[in-house]
Structure formats: C-alpha cells, structure tokens
Amino acid sequence: MSEEQIKNLEKQFEERIARDEKIEPKDWMPDKYRQTHIRQMSQHAHSEIVGMLPEGNWISRAPTLRRKVALLAKVQDEAGHGLYLYSACETLGISRDALYEQLHSGKAKYSSIFNYPTVTWADMGAVGWLVDGAAIINQVPLCSTSFGPYARAMVRVCKEESFHQRQGYEIMLKLTQGTPEQIDMAQDALNRWWWPSLMMLGPTDAESVHTEQSMKWKLKRKSNDDLRQQFIDQTVPQAELIGLTIPDPDLKWNEERGSYDFGEINWDEFWQVVKGHGPMNKERMKARIDAWEGGEWVRDAAMAHAEKKAERKIKQAI
C-alpha cells in the first residue's frame, strides 16, 4: 500500500471512531492502534491475574465462612476478568503464550498497587473498598471504548466488580463497629492503602504520555487527574460515615470548586514501585512464574489425554 493510501485509511478510521462506530478485530486498523490496545489490554489482564495474589493470601484465614465465600468468589471473578481480557487481546493477533511471556519476563507491566503487601485482615477490606473502587472509576468509561472486544469485556467486568467494592466496605464497616483493636486495624489499613490507591489512577496529566492519543481512541474519556478527583470526592464521605480518618492533613473541602483539595502525592514512590522496587514486586512475579511452571505438567497431561481420547474415537469409528 502506498503512503497516501495508508493516510487515507487512517483518516477514515479516525472518522469512524469519532462517529462512535466500534472497531472489530478483523477491521483494518493503524498499527499503532493495534499495538496500543495490545499493551493496554494485556496490562489490564495481567493486573487482574497478579491482583489475585494479595487476596489469595487471606482466603485460608478469612474470619468467617461468609467472608471466605465472598473472598473466594471475588478472586475467582478476577481470574475470569483476566481471561475475558486476555481473549479480547488475542483477537488482535497475539497468542496467549506470548502475553504470558511478556508478563513473566518483566516486559509487560501490571498495576503497581499489587506490589504492596496485605498484612492484616483489614487489608481485604481496604483493597475491596479503595483498590476496586479506584479500578471501577478507571473501568466504567472503558465500557464505551472504541475497540469492540475490549468494550464488551469491560461491560462484563464492571457488572461483576460492584460486589467487590461493597464486600470490602462491609469488612471495614464491621471492623469499625468492633473492639478498639479492630478499629485501629481498619484505620491502619486505610493509612497504608490510601496513597497507593490515589497513585493507581496514574501519573498527573502533565506527566502522562499516552493521554492525548488515548482520548481520541476512547481508551480514555477523562484525564488521570479528573478521575483521581472523582475518586477522592466520592471516597472521603464514605470514610467519614464509618468514622475513619483519611491520612492526609491537607485534605480540605473546597466550597468554590465543590471538591476536596488534597496533599502532595509521593510520585517518587510511585515510580520506584513501577520500576520494580516496591515491597512485593519480586514475590508477586515469583509466585506467578512458579504457578505457571508448576502447572506445566498439568497442561501437558491434559493435552496428552485429549489426544489419546481423540485417537480412541477414530479407532472405534474404523
């Protein structure tokens, strides 16, 4: 194809998206669109998969059966969300194995929030309430993104995610109605998860490299700073309602803006964790790789069994 033909196709493509038409996997698309989507969707899928690890840590130690079935269901949902997203990503012509390889070799990123440890039961509350809360804010706009398979996967994910946040908040609520030690535990979890949750919504707009193009492709509908403000404005009253204090001395309602002003985010910490120096980066990757390699004989055995069954069927037919 000549350069001019490609330019022409690109123009038509951008116009389709501007008209709110969806792009489907076999449609012509600019290579940059394909690569950007593979990158973002696979990061999203990896985050779901690695995101199971901090919570998996507490399944066997959940305080009641009610909490245990909820946590199990939540972790199972995350596996499901990872799978919806991987298969949506595969429609762009990259294999599942290549995607795993990118995760395991460190080439692909996942959400940095999962590189923090879950040290007490209250962390299950804070993670559901704050981390899933921030994730929902990020994900809801993606239900109308331009790439069809991604948008469809996000509709399913968002539908399922709301129970995740509610079960987390309920854990916090119960703790704040408990003994002084339980109240302290809830406050401690909020103290540790608040700032990483704010960072989860991405670097400030000034630092964000992908924003403009992503807005055009509807991979993003609001800027990181707007999403962060939305998260803060909706979460602060939720904390007040259960008697917890947001660990930010500069947090103040701004009458004029109709929003909360908040303190400086420690972006050095954010970039350190992104670069692999968070408290749990190494453990998370090791657990993930161990699971993949440890499961290899099971995958091989299943394949061998399937082949044997197929052969037997052919023999019987003859």
Partner: peptide, 11 residues
C-alpha cells in the same frame, strides 16, 4: 460470549 483455551471440547 467470548473465547477460552482448553485441551478438548469437554474441558
């Protein structure tokens, strides 16, 4: 609804 990987139809 979507797709998935499996060794055979039953799985």
């Amino acid at each position: 609804f979507g797709s998935l990987h499996a060794a055979d139809a039953e799985m």
